[in-house]
Design a protein around this nucleic acid. Structure first.
Lengths: 200, 200
DNA sequence: GTCTATATTCAGATAGAC
DNA sequence: GTCTATCTGAATATAGAC
């Protein structure tokens, strides 16, 4: 095998990359069903047939594009966990995490995407629940997951006024007390009333 | 015109109602695109042609099914607003609000649904922001909207472990401190530390 | 008033020419 | 290696029979 194949392989790599990024952005913008192979190829400046040839099927292309990397760092004291969740969320609020958004955009109408999100969310909930010392730790972890989910959807996918206009720092500042009340030992934060002020 | 038309008109009303409820549930289960006219008609025990005849188009059927009623009651003191949001959320956690779920399921992939949700959310955010006395009232209202949105999605549409298993009372109990910290006058609840306890 | 048959459009996937 | 042409299936919507 001489140089010729190396050049062609290189060309192919580049085309594949262009297809992948185009697919990632289209899936994030319009979801799995409306992101057609034709539109993806057109956005990547490639041929629809090539997309099929390189990735086999639309579903396989989606899988390669929208994998969710598992979170680590969800361990330690409640305070550490709170801050980790907040900084990790802040990162996803400043830059648009297009791979994650592709998943989120598609999860309500594409069963495979829903399954991926469920798996990732359940992993995260198990880690969170282990760090929270409470008998209702699972519910607390679930609420934390719902809050981050709702925040990302509201800002990036729906562009609701309140959240799209706010800065990431503003949002995380507002969420800090929420997460603290959810991760803190419930024996010290009763549900219905605070009989005395902050115990110190 | 005699009785005959009355009977037929009555028949038609019943068929229309069966179609509407079938459509509502199917839209809530699989979203706008995957809920085909054929499937809706089949679930309603009616003919696909009738659905078109009665409602004109799929989009019009969706509009009739999935209208979001505007919230009132979002006014008063921060405490009152917090409790109103919580009880209104609790209601949507116990029974499955299929009209709302039809909207939510479709909002990420169907532009018309997204526009409806945006309009409803912005209405609610304006009402909430008016009740919250703070310079960042819009951001606070946006975070409250994101939290309720995320909670409903996680429980009803994704069935994430933590939230699907919890009781509505558990969830609202956990969310109460969150909402209190978001609606309370920020001058009295600084972000980073609580210098003194509850002022009364 | 209700249902059958079909026109039209558009998607994913395949086979084969260049 | 890349692109053209086409097959197949499914969905909305329409026209017309019963």
């Amino acid at each position: 095998m001489g140089q010729a194949q190396g050049i062609r392989a290189r060309q192919r790599e580049e085309t594949q990359q262009r297809i992948l990024t185009a697919a990632r952005h289209l899936f994030a913008q319009v979801g799995y069903e409306r992101a057609t192979i034709r539109a993806i190829a057109s956005a990547a400046g490639a041929d629809p047939g090539l997309v099929m040839r390189y990735f086999g099927s639309k579903q396989e292309l989606f899988s390669q594009v929208a994998s969710m990397s598992p979170d680590d760092g969800l361990t330690g004291t409640p305070e550490e966990v709170t801050e980790y969740v907040l900084t990790s969320l802040a990162a996803k609020l400043t830059e648009e995490p297009s791979a994650t958004l592709a998943m989120l955009r598609s999860m309500l109408t594409h069963p495979e995407a829903a399954e991926e999100v469920r798996a990732a969310a359940n992993r995260q909930e198990r880690q969170l629940a282990a760090a929270i010392v409470a008998d209702d730790a699972e519910a607390r972890a679930g609420v934390i997951g719902a809050i981050t989910l709702g925040t990302l959807i509201a800002r990036h996918l729906l562009q609701l006024n309140g959240l799209a206009a706010a800065t990431p720092a503003q949002i995380t500042s507002l969420l800090r007390p929420c997460l603290q009340s959810l991760t803190r030992d419930p024996a010290r934060t009763p549900h219905h009333a605070a009989p005395a002020g902050d115990p110190h």
